[in-house]
């Protein structure tokens, strides 16, 4: 199968993730959409790695996985602490500082 198809799939996943970040209101779901975007990047990297026949892209994909895991640790800690003090994880409710 032509690896270019995987690039189309990666772009599609990335676009779905980005749309989700913009339209979903729950902080956890927004965060999951960001993870989807990172995984779309991984797919693109691995597909390019196959096309170029070198391993750089696959190495970067491994690093991205580690970064995504670290981001989950930090992100969930922040979102959970927000939820516990407000009893809501909606990004619309967090508006103390609107003009």
């Amino acid at each position: 199968m032509n690896p270019v198809n995987y690039l189309y799939l990666a772009s599609l996943l990335f676009a779905i993730g980005a749309t989700g970040v913009l339209i979903r209101r729950n902080a956890i779901v927004v965060f999951m959409c960001i993870e989807l975007m990172l995984n779309a990047c991984n797919l693109a990297l691995v597909a390019f790695s196959r096309m170029h026949g070198n391993l750089d892209g696959q190495i970067i994909a491994f690093f991205t996985m580690v970064v995504a895991a670290a981001e989950v640790v930090v992100g969930l800690a922040i979102i959970v602490s927000l939820f516990r003090s407000r009893h809501s994880a909606s990004v619309d409710d967090a508006s103390l500082m609107k003009l």
Partner: peptide, 27 residues
């Protein structure tokens, strides 16, 4: 906490764009 959530979500969003840019430049 609100500032941290905003910074985190937008920061992670922008770094995902950066990473996709990296993938495309690598390609």
């Amino acid at each position: 906490q609100e500032a941290a959530v905003k910074y985190f979500l937008l920061g992670a969003f922008s770094s995902a764009f950066l990473l996709f840019g990296i993938a495309l430049l690598y390609g």
